[in-house]
């Protein structure tokens, strides 16, 4: 028998891991977007700053995703199995993107010669940095539609239509826009004393923020038909107003901070905005993990498993959190 309280807590931990992945790993993907869009007289300096910011931490940032996946299959095995079956195609493509992004970035970093080969790795890195968030956002959006059901009927009905719809495309673009926004804001801080470079990314951050807000609005519009349950949650439930108020405050605050060159404040605002979008999704479909039928309660593993995993999480966090703090203090303290 499942343990309802513990199941909810562990589902919360999975969301925290996904949130951390979006804020950290997502920003690394966003860095790839700005690598592709690097332009102007400081093009090379922009790329160098991005590489310098990502290099020591991207692998650690990436592990948040693995942690979320492992916790999902341990704590909610039925949900994981359903997602893996129905979303096989987009998730496989996400994996191809993850492989290409990570390896191309490393190959470029360690290929010390600045030549055509290195530029080609750069193109793979930035291309994969765009495709991966699009597909990841699409897969997450598919969950919200309530169409990830046990496959029946034709191949298209079972394995393509659940994730290919206007709403899921919108969530894919939204993920990309949010990650690019995060990266640009973080890079204004990373630029440090280099005012020109900070301004390059300030402009990009403001542009990305406006783009993200437009896409978010558009996503909400298509949600009315594409993900009615999500739409209802986001418009008429009792926490909808505080959520939108918080998100608006964070977005406006970030823009204001960017305008005033208060880049550290902008970084907090941007992270807050993206986190609110993610938790808005989570709360809107709670207690369902895979709507319409698999929930935190009926998909949960036996109580013994949940208890052991909770213990394992405490022990793991005791090692992990101090290590993470140490990592970021070494490489991001001056930033």
């Amino acid at each position: 028998m499942a343990d309802p309280t513990l199941a909810v807590v562990l589902a919360g931990v999975i969301m925290v891991a996904l949130n951390a992945y979006a804020l950290l790993g997502g920003a690394d993907f966003g860095g790839g977007v700005w690598d592709l869009l690097a332009s102007g007289p400081r093009r090379q300096r922009q790329r160098d700053l991005i590489a310098h910011a990502i290099a020591p931490i991207w692998e650690a940032n990436h592990v948040w995703l693995i942690l979320a996946v492992v916790l999902l299959f341990t704590c909610f095995p039925a949900a994981f199995a359903r997602i893996a079956i129905v979303l096989h195609i987009p998730l496989s493509l996400v994996l191809v993107g993850i492989v290409l992004r990570g390896s191309a970035f490393t190959f470029r970093s360690y290929d010390s010669r600045r030549d055509a080969v290195q530029r080609r790795w750069g193109a793979v890195f930035s291309g994969a940095s765009i495709i991966t968030p699009l597909l990841l956002g699409t897969a997450v959006g598919a969950l919200a539609t309530g169409r990830v059901r046990a496959p029946a009927g034709s191949f298209a009905a079972g394995f393509i239509r659940p994730w290919l719809a206007p709403f899921t495309i919108a969530t894919g673009v939204l993920a990309l826009a949010l990650f690019a926004f995060l990266a640009a804001v973080y890079l204004t801080v990373e630029a440090g004393d280099d005012r020109e470079l900070a301004d390059d990314f300030r402009r990009r951050a403001i542009g990305a923020a406006i783009a993200a807000m437009i896409v978010a609005g558009g996503t909400l519009l298509v949600a009315r038909r594409g993900a009615p349950m999500m739409h209802a949650g986001l418009t008429s439930s009792r926490w909808a107003l505080p959520l939108h108020a918080g998100a608006t405050l964070a977005a406006v605050g970030t823009l204001g901070a960017l305008a005033l060159r208060r880049f550290r404040l902008a970084r907090i605002g941007a992270a807050g905005f993206v986190s609110l979008v993610i938790w808005g999704w989570a709360v809107a479909q709670f207690p369902l993990i895979v709507p319409p039928d698999l929930s935190v309660l009926n998909a949960a593993a036996p109580a013994t498993t949940l208890r052991f995993i909770a213990l394992g999480l405490v022990a793991g966090a005791a090692v992990l959190l101090p290590s993470l703090v140490y990592l970021f203090r070494i490489f991001k303290a001056s930033a």
Partner: peptide, 12 residues
């Protein structure tokens, strides 16, 4: 799931 979760932390 237990060894996989522990592996997750070790890999982290």
């Amino acid at each position: 799931g237990m060894p996989f979760s522990l592996e997750g932390f070790a890999f982290f």
